[in-house]
Amino acid sequence: MAESETPRIITPPNTLKSKVGVGGPKAVDPAVLKRAEEAIANLGDDYLDWVQEDIKKLEDGLSALKAAKGGGRDLLDTIFRVAHEIKGQGGSFGYNLMTLIGDQLCRFVEDMAEAGPPEVEVIGLHVDALKIVIANRMQGDGGQAGQALLRGLEKVVAKIG
């Protein structure tokens, strides 16, 4: 698209609106939305496989951090990316704790220049917590056990941070 010196307002053709209808047998109504939510929920078994792969990646990253006796940005970036993936998926399948723990792990490592032994230990606690949530199928808020797990992690992060 050619640049212009003076900002110009353009009204593009609304091709999207011209292609959609309103109502009818194929319209997205509340019943369709309900079925679509169920379709996501039906992928729950697949999610449990997918998330195991992500947890394995976190464990590998953690092992690398331990072997390096701490680690720099590259290893932490890997952990951030995987935790971010976990954060983005968990809630879609009712695993809200996965989203919350994944988010907390992201926040913990995102601005860290390098990880020393205490930081590596905290990362390990997050990985363990993620494994517990999946192993015990702790959906929703995880009940009392889930909330205790989350609060425990928050306290540890607050202490280290």
Binding site: V20, E37, Q89, G90
Partner: peptide, 28 residues
């Protein structure tokens, strides 16, 4: 925003359909 739900996906599609914004062509 992730995690997504079907409702949120439809909401965004609906917003694009119902509220097409004019385009701005500026230098940058």
């Amino acid at each position: 925003a992730k995690p997504i739900s079907a409702n949120h996906v439809y909401f965004r599609i609906r917003s694009v359909i119902e509220h097409p914004r004019p385009f701005v062509q500026a230098k940058e």
